[in-house]
Amino acid sequence: MGASSYISSGLIEAYISGLAAPQELQELETAIVQYPEVASAVENCRLGMEHYIMLHSVPPPPVVKQNLIRIIADEEAGRLNRIETEETQIIEHNPVRKVFVSSSWRWAAVAASLLLLGSVLLNYIYFTKESEYKARYNTLLTTNNSLTSEENSYRSRLEQIKHSLDIVRNPSMKTVKMPGTKPFPTAMATVYWNQTSKEVFLLPNNLPTPAPDKQYQLWAIVDGKPVDMGVFSLTSNAEELLQKMKSIDNAQMFAITLENKGGSPVPTMEQMYVAGKAS
């Protein structure tokens, strides 16, 4: 079936009104991927239906909001208590903090502490490799400008760095992928976050070159609030180079915005290029 026959078949309206049978649903979902015209017809139909739904808006009784606020506050308090207890049991030297810790971070913490307890040697090797990597990285940064004419050797060195990165990545190095936001779908960057040392490195996989008076700025979202993680510039090989940013103990998300040169105290949300969950 071609795009126009999907559009005239009534399948789109059946889908939007909740009438489509499971196999029809599957068929249309395939067509949406296959034909952009079908995708936009579905979206237009959905917007119409949502407009109709909005017309039926009725203010709910105030008691519903009061109940919800109470239930949510109780749940959050319960969860924070639970996390605090678990945290103090696992990591004794960690002061009690009111933070949200996701289960994946808890697993990382368990893995990290097992590693600490289990093998001092492994840690020693790991830290040696990490400082070796950092030394290489710093050398590379300082010599970057003179390296453009030696791109081939440069690339092979980068391969070495990538190799080093692979070594340090596990188990303490956490990778946070930050895909492009809706206005910038092709943008992409990655945060490498050492869960032991709390160091944060940034890899701008694909970010457009900013205007000369602009600079990208990395943010960590901690308990709903953006925390400045430093600005960075795109060098000629930016997509291959890790940049060291500010360290942070905990964060739920990372995001990058485009700001005036030197950075901004608060993120400009309309200029958010990428964002990714840390948990």
């Binding site: 709910p60 949510i72 959050e76 979202i221 709903g224 739920q252 998300m253 949300m269 958010m272 964002a275």
Partner: peptide, 28 residues
Amino acid sequence: AELVLGLKSRSEKHFGYLYDHYSPALFG
């Protein structure tokens, strides 16, 4: 985007905003 970011980091303030703006439509 900000609203979603806030909700995902479990901000009760963002939830209040979400409720105020969308509860009439969803109650409808």
